[in-house]
């Protein structure tokens, strides 16, 4: 769980509506809540709520300009979020690589043992073809399971 960003950051960014808001802030910067509301498919109230969550997560900040409040992204925090996601993806890649290795090894082992049952447990007697089909022979028993 090492790569997990802190919960606030994570849940702030995991919501698609908020990501849409964040997208707009990344691409346009310095815009007001009303401007944002005109560019998203949800209400002005929803925009305000999302802005609060993003602000609490430190992803954006607000400043006053005249009578307007403008929002902008925080680069450092954004960088942190991007890294957290990249780490998470890398973590899954490592896990998948391990699953691949384990499954392929288990498969090779299982199929190897299937052949071994044919050849009997006559270790080293590979080619002792006479044993093929002599399934009763199979002291290889336990291994059969491995093929299931």
């Amino acid at each position: 769980m090492t790569a997990q960003a802190d919960d606030e950051l994570w849940s702030a960014i995991a919501d698609p509506s908020r990501r849409r808001v964040l997208d707009l802030l990344v691409s346009h910067g310095d815009v007001s809540a009303s401007w944002l509301a005109g560019h998203v498919p949800f209400s002005r109230q929803a925009v305000s709520k999302h802005l609060v969550v993003l602000e609490q997560a430190g992803l954006i900040s607000r400043r006053k300009q005249g009578r307007e409040v403008l929002f902008q992204v925080d680069d450092g925090r954004l960088d942190q979020a991007a890294r957290a996601m990249a780490d998470l993806a890398a973590q899954w890649d490592r896990r998948l690589a391990t699953i691949k290795r384990l499954a392929e090894a288990a498969h090779v082992e299982a199929t190897g043992h299937v052949e071994a049952t044919g050849h009997g447990e006559a270790t080293g007697h590979v080619g002792a073809t006479g044993h093929v089909g002599a399934t009763g022979h199979v002291g290889a028993t336990g291994h059969v399971e491995a093929t299931r």
């Binding site: 998948l96 391990t98 699953i99 498969h107």
Partner: peptide, 29 residues
């Protein structure tokens, strides 16, 4: 959030066991 995939040279039964049996999960997870 994350979407990754891998192609494994093993039948689906073997992969299923690898991802669902606790003693195997402890090897990759």
């Amino acid at each position: 959030v994350i979407e990754r995939e891998v192609l494994i040279e093993a039948p689906v039964q073997v992969v299923w066991r690898t991802i669902t049996e606790p003693d195997r999960m402890s090897q990759w997870f």
